[in-house]
Design a protein around this nucleic acid. Structure first.
Lengths: 227, 227
DNA sequence: CAGATACGCGACAGACCCGTATCGAATCCT
DNA sequence: AGGATTCGATACGGGTCTGTCGCGTATCTG
């Protein structure tokens, strides 16, 4: 869906590229029966540098508009040619680069649903990778009308899997009786994610306090009603 | 804080410019004792058109980067000169233009705190002006690191006053006993605003359903705990 | 009326970016 | 060795945007 140049991808495209990265520069994921093409193989090092530079820029610049191919090339220490040989344009590059943020999220199994939710929420606002993910989220959602495909794919491949983790925890809570039997899972999801995402972005009122995750979960657990 | 040109502002700057807009093109808010400057007065019509075009573009383009002076001028049917005569650069223009979104929000006084919250939440996601405000919010927050002054001022002058309305309702609920005596007002605020803002931006899952505001408030009121 | 200023329009230099092309050097296979 | 391909670097034409300037016209004051 991204490469339009002559060569076949030779790139991640579904697999987990960051798994090994071991010895040889290539020869790992080669198709059995497909001969290696002649000539110098593409640099995996360049692949990684480009994707990382793209994600970093997206997170820092606060918008797709701030990511220019030239800036990516400079930051990755790579020629523009090397980028255009792999992706036809900026949007395709960003779409592929976002796959770098996919790495899923193991559902914690702690003493209680409350503890699990707190653990997830805590990671959401304090973990470094999660923070980068969140910055990219804001960058993409801000320009969502401009790049709907980008938003759709990011939502499907990065956001939803993480929401699924919370869904799982919530359903487990319903099953165990820790949560209401008639729980509105989706609305609860919006409440949790919304509060965390919004608060994490509001620099004006200072950094996210340590106990914020706890307060969110507990307020939500208990409810605000007086009875 | 914005105009650097020779002339004094002659612009809103604190007042409510959209109130009258009645007959004469000027002569309304003139200082008693200060003589009117010679020459053709600045067009109020251009003022309004520029500000409106700026806000619209900010909401539509999904980012500060998408607002160019040239686009604003074209959309407002105005020469670039007319803009540069009033504001020194894009950021100053946007800062002033956002004042157009200030109009506060009367705290509803309905039968119950729950009804008030639902009313506010409903307006938040369905009212047209509120939707534009929300789009601007996303645009600005996305590029918050790039334009911290812009975000700070927008937060202070547009967002916080509206949060204050909800704070008031929540405190009223605590006083009347409808809400818990030990309510964590700020966290509750993040939960409500976060859920609404996030959901309103997630086009991928369809438009905001009519009952979303109700579900958010009720889930929050009741809590999710099983006991 | 004359003087002062604002108006919309278009031109301009400088900056940035896109996407392509070309270069010599490097890397891989046969 | 020789052919194929990629590498980073650089240059290019074409586009958009910025902020300034000059033009002829419109509007207001005295």
């Amino acid at each position: 869906m991204s490469q339009t140049r002559e060569r076949p991808p030779a790139q991640a495209a579904g697999g987990s590229p960051g798994a090994g990265g071991s010895q040889s520069s290539t020869g790992a994921g080669r198709q059995p029966g497909a001969a290696r093409p002649p000539g110098r193989p593409r640099s995996e090092r360049a692949d990684k540098a480009i994707v990382e530079a793209t994600v970093d820029l997206l997170a820092e610049e606060g918008g797709v508009a701030g990511v220019s191919i030239e800036a990516v090339a400079a930051r990755a220490g790579v020629g523009k040619t090397t980028i255009y040989r792999r992706w036809p344009n900026k949007e395709a590059l960003i779409i592929d680069a976002l796959a770098a943020l996919k790495e899923p999220f193991p559902a914690p199994v702690g003493a209680s649903v409350r503890d699990d939710l707190v653990a997830i929420a805590q990671a959401f606002v304090s973990n470094k990778t999660d923070r980068k993910r969140l910055d990219c989220y804001w960058s993409i959602m801000g320009g969502a009308e401009r790049y709907p495909d980008l938003m759709a794919r990011f939502t499907r491949e990065v956001i939803e899997p993480r929401r699924d983790v919370i869904r799982l925890v919530l359903r487990r809570g319903v099953a165990s009786g820790e949560l209401r039997a008639d729980l509105d899972v989706e609305t609860t999801l919006w409440l949790i994610m919304g509060a965390l995402a919004q608060r994490a972005r509001a620099f004006g009122v200072g950094p996210v306090p340590d106990d914020f995750a706890t307060r969110v979960v507990d307020t939500l657990m208990t409810g605000i009603s007086g009875h």
